[in-house]
């Protein structure tokens, strides 16, 4: 059986900068897979390449064996890939409710939209209090909640999370990781990019370590978390 999401020898460039140098990656149905690595290793670029925001020069991206390389972002999203981009990218002048409605762009059924919105409020009760507030006026943590909820509104099969813990207070970070586990338990496959490697490896089943555009290590998360190199470089231990 084909993996839910698969990257084969993907090379992506920004102008002349060779950002991904032949990345191979696999995400199976129901997994939480994490992608760790330092700044500029190509983690975000990997996600951007999957969702079609940047086109790879070489290599392919498959969703359930179907080649989606080079498709437009809106078409890729329609196939069931939800992307929570780096920096949250909330629509700042739309209200929380409107942001969520935009997330359910493809859903016509009003009842279904309301049901999913209720589900989002269940995960993040804070959003319910802010429902008529404009996205740009939310705090960083609230924006992250909104960004995740917005992606879930489309009921994606796989959700790509780009640094969901970035800039959040430690108490909020724990909460976000709890939510990610819950989302996964409800049947959504997760590909998680994180700088907080320890937290990420704790909730993930498998992990990939990216270094200057190449996968240097891949294994089960509980093995990676004990790996000498990972401990030293990414978990800050001596």
């Amino acid at each position: 059986m084909a993996a839910l999401l698969e990257l084969k020898n993907v090379h992506t460039y920004y102008g002349h900068i060779h950002a991904l140098k032949g990345v191979d990656l696999e995400v199976n149905q129901g997994e939480i897979v994490t992608l760790i690595g330092s700044n500029g290793a190509g983690k975000s670029t990997t996600l951007r390449t999957i969702s079609g925001m940047t086109r790879p020069k070489q290599g392919s991206v498959y969703l359930e064996g179907r080649d989606i390389t080079g498709m437009k972002p809106n078409h890729i999203a329609a196939l069931g890939i939800g992307h929570v981009p780096e920096g949250r990218r909330i629509f700042p002048l739309l209200t929380v409710k409107e942001n969520l409605e935009i997330g359910a762009w493809n859903v016509q059924d009003r009842v279904e939209i309301n049901r999913r919105m209720e589900r989002a409020f269940e995960l993040f009760p804070r959003l319910r209090e802010r429902v008529e507030q404009k996205g740009g006026t939310l705090s960083g943590g609230e924006q992250q909640m909104l960004a995740i909820s917005r992606a879930l509104m489309s009921a994606p099969r796989v959700i790509l999370l780009d640094e969901p813990s970035m800039g959040l207070a430690p108490v909020l970070v724990e909460g976000i990781f709890e939510i990610i586990k819950r989302i996964n338990a409800d049947g959504t496959t997760v590909l998680l990019v994180e700088q907080n490697a320890h937290m990420a490896l704790e909730i993930a089943q498998r992990g990939y370590v990216l270094q200057t555009g190449t996968v240097v290590l891949q294994d089960m998360a509980d093995i990676l978390i004990n790996d000498q190199m990972v401990r030293k470089v990414y978990l800050g231990e001596n």
Binding site: P85, F91, L94
Partner: peptide, 24 residues
Amino acid sequence: TKLGRGVRAVSQDQSTAGLMRIDV
């Protein structure tokens, strides 16, 4: 209207609007 909301979303952030399945 929903389309109007889409236009506003595109005006605020084109690439993210694309991620939300909107045909920019």
